[in-house]
Design a protein around this nucleic acid. Structure first.
Lengths: 219, 219
DNA sequence: GCATATTTGTCCGTATGTATA
DNA sequence: CTATACATACGGACAAATATG
């Protein structure tokens, strides 16, 4: 489900638009976002744009250097490791509270099948998006609005990393089947097996990101 | 450690001041925060205040109803349950990653002793604050900036609940010794014992809050 | 190191829309 | 339904800090 843009305040709407662009990798890491240029681009006043900047700063997607402006976050290896640490804590914690007949499992099943279809036609960007949605759905198993909300921020920051790496097949392809296995374990109530599969997935994914990261840095 | 107020932007400074007042229970739940009055009170323009409002909205301490203004969040039983669910996931997850020789244990020891002293002189508000700091320190065992940052928001919202209940001795007193026991288990590397103690603490604390909550509501 | 241009920071005034008494 | 109060959003202005030459 996408974020609403209808009844939101202008600041929230602008923040949502910039957030999407950030996640899509439309800006370079560390790039300065000019108040004047952005205000013109979105046809809003500087004041309204500044409100949007404060929202995105709270979310950790941009950083604010007083008197210098706001900059796109530039995550390093340490940040990637930290993000996966948070994922590990939250997602493993969710497994303990998951019930096998939860409606979110149905959505996860749909997402797995859509990812298989997207992979078959080589649309790896879509596979990446669907993979994120799969894990978002997994967290929703806990029925905790705050946990889901915080997890969304983690995924947003991680997608910002992906966007900078230029999403490739090796980054997402291996996880189509991994997600299917994970879902099957959850459906049959095999919590400890789901735990192992999740742990393997996170470790594998983290290594793949870090590998692409260092290759991207040196190249 | 308190939040910095020196080199911060004005919006962040104002947000920090309002955050402290919210946590201290200076406003009633659901109360509207008037833009004009607040701007006058803090001697800042409405624009700067609005930036601060966006920050606090992102943090979940106030809610923004477009064209109506911002209001202090009014957490109900469901919110308390959710907050403790998040605490459970994060804090249990931290235990798995904790190392016995971590420097944070020293700080936890100091906090336990300060809480004992505050309890001896009947300063229950201070005991509550020190208890929060103790659990903040516990989460810092994971050495994860993002986990600590997210956890801070959870505690802030929880303290907002406490502030509304009018903190009493029964809400914090029983946990001075519980924290000491938990620390001792962590120091000696008894992870599974720490896990049980933490689980008992969270369950006990949640029940106490919910009990005071419903009593406060009906009374 | 210095002078200049650019950008952010902060405030004000005001027109408009929305909700509430 | 009218009136009032308020949030919304904009543009302009000037000071302060920073970047640029």
């Amino acid at each position: 489900m996408e974020r609403e843009t209808g009844a939101m305040a202008l600041s929230a709407r602008i923040a949502a638009i910039i957030r999407e662009r950030l996640i899509a990798g439309a800006f370079r890491p560390g790039e300065r976002l000019s108040e004047q240029q952005m205000a013109e681009r979105f046809s809003v006043s500087r004041n309204s744009l500044r409100e949007a900047f404060r929202i995105l700063t709270s979310e950790g997607l941009i950083v604010h250097h007083p008197n210098r402006g706001v900059f796109v976050v530039s995550p390093g290896e340490a940040d990637v490791i930290d993000l996966y640490r948070v994922r590990s804590v939250i997602q493993k914690g969710v497994l303990a509270a998951a019930v096998p007949e939860h409606p979110a499992l149905k959505r996860m099943d749909t997402l797995v099948r859509e990812a298989e279809a997207a992979g078959a036609r080589g649309d790896w960007a879509q596979v990446g998006t669907l993979n994120m949605e799969f894990h978002r759905a997994m967290v929703s198993l806990a029925d905790s609005p705050r946990l889901s909300s915080r997890f969304d921020l983690v995924l947003a920051e991680l997608r910002l990393v992906f966007g900078q790496l230029g999403d490739g097949a090796p980054l997402h392809a291996p996880f189509i089947k991994a997600n299917a296995d994970l879902l099957e374990a959850l459906r049959s109530g095999e919590i400890s097996r789901a735990h192992s599969l999740l742990e393997a997935y996170l470790a594998h994914s983290e290594r793949a990101v870090l590998a692409t990261f260092s290759r991207h840095k040196s190249g």
